[in-house]
Design a protein around this nucleic acid. Structure first.
Length: 274
DNA sequence: CACGAGACCTGTTCGC
DNA sequence: TGCGAACAGGTCTCGT
């Protein structure tokens, strides 16, 4: 499910609350339970469950596809991978299937990490920067400029699709937003990164930021049975639109496999450069 | 360094 | 209808 816009949406919900759900800010943890041990990367289950009670939630933030709760002593960091979700519910709610980790708060609410496929991961650390050390820039950061993207593209000799999915190159893009951004930029997913001109790089930079902002504006995308709330899936131009007409030119959208990932593009609008 | 295959998991959809 | 194969928003590790 979750790429940058979905994680940003969930972070905003946890930070600000909703009409029928309180904000987590200021809440104090009373108890923690790990239901699927492999979810927790560090520390041990015993230390995790022992260190959390008593800590207060100071803030909620996002870095790439990671979501973090700043607590009084540590940072509690989640990566939702393919099917993870974070839900705030009353503690008397019966446990839904696929809940992997629970954080109870004084006041009767709990945060539930639900993850059907068990790929999601959680860290409790006092050094979040170490965890994020290998991540590339934040695409929506004002310090990330078109020129930076151009230089990073020039420094590599890789196909655009796998490169944009590489979180050490740029943090936050996944399969949906990469396909959408490349289509908007008119660039073929197999184009080599160091063939792009400054103009191409600027177009790609603009497209990446536009599709991410569009995703955030729609509260992310909800596909299949995973996630809820967002409706960006109704605005896909190429992702999972195989055979449908390209919104620009009407040519049928094609699907190929690149780096073992389904890749959707318009052969007319996104030609390989000579 | 770049790339492909396989692993990790469960659930849905596709194709015969 | 039934049943196995293919596929799914991600990332890591290993081998070439």
């Amino acid at each position: 499910m979750p790429e940058l816009p979905e994680v940003e949406t969930i972070a905003a919900i946890l930070r600000n609350g909703t009409p029928d759900q309180p904000s987590l800010r200021g809440m104090v943890i009373s108890n923690a339970r790990v239901l699927w041990a492999r979810t927790l990367v560090t520390p041990s289950v015993a230390e995790f469950e022992q260190r959390l009670p008593g800590q207060l939630v100071k803030d909620i933030w996002r870095r790439g596809k990671h979501l973090a709760l700043s607590l009084s002593q540590h940072d509690l960091i989640f990566h939702l991978r393919m099917s993870g979700d974070l839900l705030v519910e009353r503690q008397d709610t019966p446990l839904a299937p696929h809940h992997r980790l629970l954080i109870d708060f004084t006041g009767g609410y709990r945060l539930a990490f639900n993850d059907t496929r068990k790929f999601g991961r959680v860290w409790l650390t006092s050094e979040p920067d170490k965890l994020f050390a290998s991540l590339g820039p934040e695409p929506l950061d004002e310090n990330f400029q078109a020129q930076d993207l151009y230089q990073r593209l020039q420094a590599r000799h890789r196909r655009l699709k796998p490169l944009l999915l590489d979180q050490s190159f740029l943090a936050g893009l996944g399969n949906i937003y990469t396909d959408e951004a490349l289509h908007k930029a008119g660039l073929h997913p197999l184009e080599m990164s160091d063939k792009l001109t400054e103009n191409h790089a600027e177009r790609l930079w603009r497209s990446i930021r536009q599709v991410l902002q569009e995703g955030i504006r729609h509260n992310g995308a909800s596909i299949d049975w995973v996630y809820r709330g967002g409706n960006f899936q109704n605005h896909f131009r190429v992702y999972r639109q195989t055979g449908k007409p390209c919104p620009n030119c009407g040519a049928p959208i094609q699907k190929i496999t690149v780096g073992q990932r389904g890749t959707h593009f318009c052969p007319q609008c996104q030609p390989l450069m000579p």
